[in-house]
Design a protein around this nucleic acid. Structure first.
Lengths: 186, 186
DNA sequence: TAGCTATATATCACTAAGATATATACAATG
DNA sequence: CATTGTATATATCTTAGTGATATATAGCTA
């Protein structure tokens, strides 16, 4: 297991509280799904190797009827490893953007198809912005005394800034495309 | 080979001109590297399967000294398949964001480390914004009569909107973190 | 002449995503 | 009362995608 990001996402989740692989998946979805995803295909093998590296400990809770819960808890060594990674510089990475790839080859298809893509994207961003606003309100109320709050709010604000900018871009893009279409008709 | 995006990136590049796998890699880097990446590990196997599907044809040019050039050209069927995909709706996808993951667990490390991450990110975005401005200028001059230009400009403008928004977010984030730090000292 | 860069194809190991298999408990619905 | 759906829970498999490396030649530069 090399410098896989999933490893640190798992360690990070366990730094909040001891939990099972299933819990980790749920927690990721609840708290950081706006900018992170984890799959069972990553989580379970990683938990196994984290135990081998002594970064976490495993306790089996006999489940009443339900499958046994394998509960993992961060060791001191595990916390150190998480902190080491958190202190490391962030390596920038190009994100593949399907919308932009389609628009780049936009001349291959009709004007309406391209407009449709942008309009669909605008709806998406509008929904996201609403969602971010709701999250902000919710966590400000629920975690008012939690020392993590300032950092959590930062991640929500990031989404808001991006979505607002993309809504502007959509409007501008639609205007420009319309202008181009008109001038070509003449 | 299923609905892999790489397949359509390759078909798209070949819609501009016939070229080799090596050319495709270069062209992707020159033209769409701000929002797309392709690796040889994808390109070569895909070209093979595209030939099998009759979406492209292959011609071998004997190279003088250099390795032979395998030049691929889009067939009518290939262009249709590209257009079919371009008309399809864009499926939204959550992008993993390492910076936000690190900030989410920011309380685990010192104030300065988090500030450092944001400052580094601000520099990155500043550089990107400059780059986008340069690209805009360049392609407006070089492709003034190219009918693709309006679409290509859209992709550049997207980057500009996002980078500007992220610069704002950085400034805001640094302010907020400073406030939090001060109020904790008291 | 040794090293670097560009051309060019190809493959391998590893990371990550998404779907599926398996099994149980409990609540809701007809 | 039986069936359906949802939640809990672990685990694995296939496919997609990244990045590095292998191989080979030509030309330029220090």
């Amino acid at each position: 297991m090399r410098e896989t990001k999933s490893k640190y996402a798992v360690l990070g989740m366990l730094s909040i509280a001891p939990m099972s692989g299933y819990d980790i998946k749920k927690r990721v979805e609840e708290s950081i799904s706006n900018f992170w995803t984890e799959s069972y295909g990553q989580i379970y093998p990683i938990l196994k190797s984290l135990v081998a590296e002594k970064l976490v400990t495993k306790t089996v809770e006999r489940g009443a009827g339900k499958p046994d819960r394998h509960v993992y808890a961060l060791t001191d060594q595990g916390r150190e490893e998480l902190q080491r990674w958190l202190a490391e510089g962030v390596t920038p990475k190009v994100e593949r953007n399907e919308l932009l790839l389609k628009l780049f080859f936009g001349e291959e298809v009709s004007f309406d198809i391209n407009v449709g893509h942008i309009e669909g994207f605008r709806e998406l961003q509008r929904g996201l912005l609403e969602k971010y606003k709701a999250i902000e309100k919710e966590i400000k109320a629920e975690y008012a005394d939690n020392s993590n709050l300032p950092y959590w709010l930062l991640t929500v604000s990031y989404g808001q800034h991006v979505s607002r900018a993309l809504l502007d871009w959509c409007d501008e893009a639609l205007l420009k495309l319309n202008k181009t279409a008109k001038s070509r008709k003449k």
